[in-house]
Simulated assay, not measured.
Amino acid sequence: MVLVVPPDGPVTRVCTAGVVPVGGRQRRKGRVEVTGRINEPEDDCRGGPDADTAETTIALSGDGSCIAEARHQATAFLARHEGGHRTRVPARVAGLAVLVVSELVTNACKYAPGPIRLRLRLGGEALEVEVWDSDPVLPAASGADPERVGRHGLEIVQAVAADFAVLRDTVGKWVTVRILLSPS
């Protein structure tokens, strides 16, 4: 599923079942979101809610050292919830999640000045990785080019994600990736 968020138009949620209009924007915790957040059940896009969730938010400095810190914090969060949490995180998914965190935080460090916020949310059938940065420019994956060195991060993230969304905020943007715990 992909959320398409034009600057001054209707918000649309695209999923494998078709195009589902999303009711509009709402304010929550100081950020602009769409009605029907990416981690909530949405018509034909996913199943029912799961009350058993774990979440952490990490403030990062935005300098080069924050990439390793983000990977470390993500690994620690996943390890804390692997055994005792009702939702078990398979090692393969944990590895993919750390890769996604690394790529998104690297992009934020590279293209956005200032601090970065990383949010990890584990619950139900998926792990959600959200990264906020101060740059309002929405990221776009480059076209496939085997000759190109570098700039493959967003392509990698989209390849492993069940859902990928970018939402503009009052300042900057949120990039949200949803990784299924039991990919089919």
Rank of each mutant, 00 (worst) to 15 (best):
L3A: 13
G153K: 06
G48P: 15
E55L: 05
P10D: 10
P183D: 14
V129N: 00
R25S: 08
G83D: 11
H85V: 03
V2T: 15
L78N: 04
W132I: 05
R25D: 05
S134N: 15
D163C: 10
D50Q: 14
R37S: 11
R86K: 10
A17S: 14
L122N: 05
V171I: 13
G143E: 09
L104N: 06
D8Y: 03
S142L: 14
R13W: 11
V177T: 07
I38D: 03
R151T: 10
G95D: 12
A112V: 06
A161M: 12
N107D: 13
G84Q: 12
A59N: 06
E33L: 12
D133Y: 02
A126Q: 05
P6E: 09
G84F: 00
G30E: 03
S134M: 08
R46N: 13
V4H: 13
K110C: 11
P90L: 08
R178A: 03
S182G: 10
A59D: 12
P7K: 15
E69R: 13
R168T: 03
I116A: 09
G24R: 13
L78P: 03
G143A: 14
D169M: 01
V20D: 12
A94M: 01
K29N: 10
I38R: 10
T170S: 08
R86Q: 13
A144V: 14
A126V: 01
I179C: 07
L154Q: 09
C66V: 01
R151L: 15
D8C: 03
N107K: 11
P90Q: 13
D163K: 11
E128D: 11
N39D: 13
E155Y: 02
E40T: 12
R119Y: 02
V129L: 07
E130V: 00
A91V: 08
P7R: 14
V131N: 02
V166L: 06
C109V: 15
